[in-house]
Design a protein around this nucleic acid. Structure first.
Lengths: 155, 155
DNA sequence: TATTGTTATACTCTATAACTATA
DNA sequence: TATAGTTATAGAGTATAACAATA
């Protein structure tokens, strides 16, 4: 990278865009009486036959202790269920219940429509490009995480 | 927009990238014994002579009730101070203390360096483009917020 | 009457670590 | 010993609404 002096702008912009987007997305999700992490779990499970909490945590970036609580609240709402894994006695499978699947199927299109309004002025190409940029950034962040982990540059 | 079927991917990617980035950024900030919202307030105040809580809330997207708490915790840490506004008896000015400014000046470059590692493989042009894309998205979200506010597409 | 900021409430998330049970 | 998940704890953010003081 050439001009570090420009970083404040990119960084601020990144943060602001994140926040703005999250607060926008949260508005829709809250109407469903769900929190963002809860809805995240639901849409992550949406197209699957269930998965282990471990994988669910990796996908949603929710740490295990927290995830137990999130899953519990969704269980209380009757939207997901825990089933013991047959192969591994320590393990479980979390999956949507009928009700959970119904919520997913009924609200996800709405949610997408709600989000898609943001892209009204985008061409399909714009969207594809944005996605590619996001994937790139995602991979960069992921690499940086694993990488030097978190040891700072100079301490 | 042409193909809504592609939205799940963009959307998921957007969320994942946000989360990944935030968790990456949080790692650095937590070393300062600050939370992300707290640090956000500090860098927002960093280059200014202070501002009203109202404006601070608009910049950081923290709602007023929450902001009172965040500012209070920063005040407890001696990093910001409240001063009564001279023009408006209802109003205040929040500004960094000496200590707060020191934290800002000492850590922000580090923070930028930490973030900038993500862009090691980016050219200056890539970064500029990414920023432009983020600005565009930011504006799109901002417009959508004010716009239809939050009334759903079909209820 | 509207606005700025505080307070209060109840809930959720987060990080961390200790713990149980299986492997 | 290592792994999957739970539990416990303490702190912080969130939404919401009621409230005081000022405009």
């Amino acid at each position: 990278m050439s001009s570090p002096a420009t970083f404040p702008t990119v960084l601020r912009q990144l943060l602001r865009t994140h926040q703005m987007f999250l607060s926008y997305a949260a508005r829709h999700v809250h109407r469903l009486d769900l929190t963002l992490p809860q809805y995240d779990v639901i849409i992550t499970l949406g197209n699957t036959d269930g998965m282990q909490p471990k994988k669910l945590g990796e996908e949603t970036l929710i740490t295990k202790g927290t995830l137990t609580g999130v899953i519990g609240r969704l269980e209380d709402k009757g939207l997901v269920e825990r089933r013991a894994s047959k192969n591994d006695g320590r393990s479980q499978i979390i999956r949507l219940t009928e009700a959970g699947r119904a919520v997913y199927q009924q609200t996800f299109p709405e949610h997408l429509a709600y989000i898609s309004r943001l892209f009204d002025d985008y061409t399909a190409e714009d969207v594809a490009k944005l996605e590619a940029d996001l994937v790139r950034l995602y991979q960069a962040v992921n690499a940086a995480r694993g990488d030097s982990g978190g040891e700072s540059a100079d301490d």
